[in-house]
Write a protein that binds this DNA or RNA. Structure first.
Lengths: 232, 232
DNA sequence: CGGAGAATTGATCACAATCAATCGAGGTGG
DNA sequence: CCACCTCGATTGATTGTGATCAATTCTCCG
């Protein structure tokens, strides 16, 4: 059960402890769930699941960073979630059977914990706090998505860039290790446009950029009194 | 308890019976909930709740049509849900305390049923099928919102118009009683642009238009093999 | 080194927002 | 009953933003 690159029971317990979905549960309940979980390591760049894969498991990030994105038939990709340790990858598809156009990919070497769908659902219904957490996460997803739609309508690329950088700053701190392509897929624009936006910010002295890296120099300048918080 | 324009217990029972959230429950459970509910009539044009109102109730449409929309500080409004009998108005804010920028307005004379937040939450946790329904509704909302974001990125106004009309056709049938302003707020564009799009469809013979009314002549022409279903 | 992927900047073009003006329909009050 | 007023519909003209195409440089890594 404890093969190479897998998590020991203790490490697994820590993952569940820090997870949005399971925190606040009694230790023995968490352990019961941890005992049924399996952990799988993914190297940077690996695909964890593909678009339209039928989902039989509930995925939880234990370590690393996983990008969850949706893809249109035209080939546009939109990054929807950057999941760090404790965050679930596929809450929605865990509960409704129908497949979704979502895809998960490890952006760094990562460890992912899998629970059988049936186990997780049964567990959730026995623990109201898990249900609460699920509804909260889904609620945030709805809010965030609607907020992004409003952004697409009312804000230009520059403004959306500021908002995304601010959100990333809050989640990851001042040093952001993302490529312009990745940033563009979060904003919903092209690489060129996002580079032009970054270029303006650089000239204003608000950021510095290197290959695959953006440093926020003046976080204050990105705080928007504006509309709802952006989640990633 | 049964003032003018209010619902009798029997009518109330019917509402709960046809509601996405409560269907499938035992009659006595539904009646217990119906007994705690109050019903309020709203005239066409009335506001049911405003943006940033603190939400203390769970709202369910009993009769009529209610538009739920979010509004940005710049004044852009995006219609998010057209709720008919049985549909909830504020699932998300019922479960998370923080206020949202959503607003509900009666588009026709409507009857709305209110449940105290605490009553509804307690009830939901006693009935797994209600929880399932809630998660399904939220899941659809997430899917739909993400699908709309992809539309904003990859589709032009004409294509988005086709998609919205198709979604409206599925929900309301071939005769759509909406103004161009309302349609524009669903698509996320301006009145003028939506009128131009409608004009093209009219010239193609796919629709006819009158004041505050659109008739779909060839529904087949709107079916998109494309991306995920749009919910309204 | 050499190659692949990332960054950068320029030039062009199309779509849709904006501004503007007119028309039409329905509702209200004198 | 007619005059009027408001809101919706419609079309034209103009403009700006961002997508697209293209070319070059840079950087990391094998």
């Amino acid at each position: 059960m404890n093969g190479i690159g897998m998590l020991g029971l203790d490490e697994m317990a820590v993952v569940f402890e820090q997870s949005i979905c399971f925190r606040g549960l009694k230790p023995q309940a968490r352990h019961a769930m941890a005992a049924k979980a399996i952990s799988i390591p993914f190297a940077k760049g690996d695909t964890i699941f593909h678009a339209n894969d039928p989902q039989r498991h509930f995925y939880l990030v234990a370590k690393g960073l996983v990008r969850v994105s949706i893809c249109s038939l035209e080939g546009h990709r939109l990054t929807y979630l950057l999941a760090v340790a404790g965050e679930p990858l596929n809450l929605v598809s865990t509960f409704s059977k129908k497949p979704r156009m979502i895809e998960a990919r490890a952006m760094r070497d990562s460890m992912v914990v899998l629970l059988k769908q049936t186990d997780f659902i049964a567990f959730a219904f026995q623990h109201p706090s898990v249900i609460s957490a699920i509804i909260t996460v889904l609620g945030n997803a709805v809010d965030s998505a609607n907020s992004r739609i409003l952004d697409m309508v009312g804000k230009n690329v520059d403004q959306r860039m500021r908002r995304i950088l601010h959100a990333l700053y809050l989640k990851f701190g001042p040093t952001l290790r993302f490529t312009s392509i990745e940033i563009a897929e979060m904003i919903g624009t092209t690489v060129e446009s996002s580079l032009r936006a970054l270029s303006k910010l650089r000239k204003k002295g608000l950021i510095t950029t290197q290959r695959s890296r953006i440093d926020i120099l003046k976080p204050e300048a990105f705080a928007d009194s504006d509309s709802g918080m952006l989640w990633l």
